[in-house]
Amino acid sequence: MAVDWELIAFFILSAFEIIGSVLVVINKRLVRAAFWLAMTLVTIGVIYLLFLSEFVFLIQILVYAGAVPVLMVFGIMLTRRKIMDEPGQEAPE
């Protein structure tokens, strides 16, 4: 029986991607959600590689894995009031 390895790889990657994107949506901690988004984008990049489009894969890594999650985390951290778990943010006396 000939095994279609590409199909299997595609399904595994798709599973990772779906799990990642679901986690992006349901995660309560926004910073973690952004990092799951990074994983999702990397998996999409690997799927591009599976389609033999290396250039798109590398650009995907360069832009979507390297820059976009970082910018999103920046956005989250610069706008939300509380990002750290510990309570003591009040002025010391």
């Binding site: 910073v31 290396e54 890594i61 894995a65 750290m84």
Partner: peptide, 28 residues
């Protein structure tokens, strides 16, 4: 030896900020 070797190297370089940001956030 890839045809897009230089681009690959730059992409690998650009992954580091993500790791650094994770490290900075996670240590609380």
């Amino acid at each position: 030896n890839l045809d897009l070797g230089i681009l690959f190297i730059l992409a690998a370089f650009s992954l580091a900020p993500l790791g650094i940001l994770i490290a900075g956030y996670a240590a609380n």
